[in-house]
């Protein structure tokens, strides 16, 4: 991602000199992006403990309002940014995808915390989605368990950089025939159907956990149980 392509050809010193004379020089794209990045309205919803850190970021000590994002909207129709703050269970995933679909363009998505990125400590569970990126395109991944409010602010700044790098003529949400509605998965007999959206995400060729740590995935049948009467009491 090229984050600096919108820097105008007029040098900053000349701009500064002109500003002293009361002449403000800008490009349409810069003005447009300045407006957009200075008022990113997040969708007001939390899924798990990361939501507490998100709330802390919105409170006085960390004060996300300094970045223009203090207006947490309770309706997806008025939101620009979705912060997936916490574990996405399989039961919740269809609702999350539907909410994202209901947001107007341009829209952005931050995954906050290990669970939202890849399932976190619950990755082997039968009930937890292994990362929302299986169904939705993610703009900023924010690792941590949970990330501190400063980290959320940093993630927001990274998102602002991304917003700054977009142009009106290149903006994908103005293009014709853009496919930005993501199909909502269904609740099937063993989990979600489909397990992932191959147009958005595809599994790696090798299980990186096994490759890195040599640990098998422990999700199969269990065949051990203690004998309570004979075993010594704790």
């Amino acid at each position: 991602m090229n984050l600096t392509k919108n820097i105008s050809s007029v040098c900053d010193r000349l701009k500064g000199e002109l500003m002293k004379e009361g002449v403000f020089l800008t490009t349409l794209t810069q003005l447009y992006n300045w407006g957009r990045r200075s008022s990113v309205w997040p969708l007001q919803f939390g899924l798990a403990c990361c939501a507490i850190e998100m709330i802390a970021a919105a409170c006085a000590r960390f004060d996300i309002a300094r970045f223009g994002s203090e207006l947490f909207r309770a309706s997806p129709r008025q939101a620009d940014l979705m912060i997936i703050s916490g574990t996405v269970t399989k039961k919740m995933a269809p609702a999350v995808v539907r909410l994202y679909n209901q947001m107007p363009e341009p829209k952005y998505l931050i995954t906050m915390g290990a669970c939202a990125i890849a399932g976190g400590p619950f990755i082997d569970g039968y009930n937890v989605l292994r990362g929302i990126d299986r169904y939705l395109p993610v703009d900023v991944h924010l690792p941590g368990c949970p990330p501190r409010p400063e980290a959320l602010l940093y993630g927001l700044m990274e998102l602002q950089k991304k917003i700054d790098s977009q142009t009106i003529e290149g903006a994908e949400w103005y293009r014709k025939g853009l496919k930005r509605e993501f199909p909502v998965p269904e609740l099937g007999p063993y989990g979600l159907v489909p397990k992932y959206n191959p147009e958005v995400w595809q599994p790696r060729a090798q299980d990186s956990r096994k490759q890195k740590y040599g640990l098998p995935i422990l999700t199969g049948k269990k065949d051990k149980a203690p004998e309570l009467e004979t075993a010594p009491a704790a």
């Binding site: 989990g191 397990k195 992932y196 191959p198 999700t219």
Partner: peptide, 8 residues
């Protein structure tokens, strides 16, 4: 028996 969530 848990599903393999990587295989469609």
């Amino acid at each position: 028996v848990q599903e393999d969530s990587e295989v469609l």
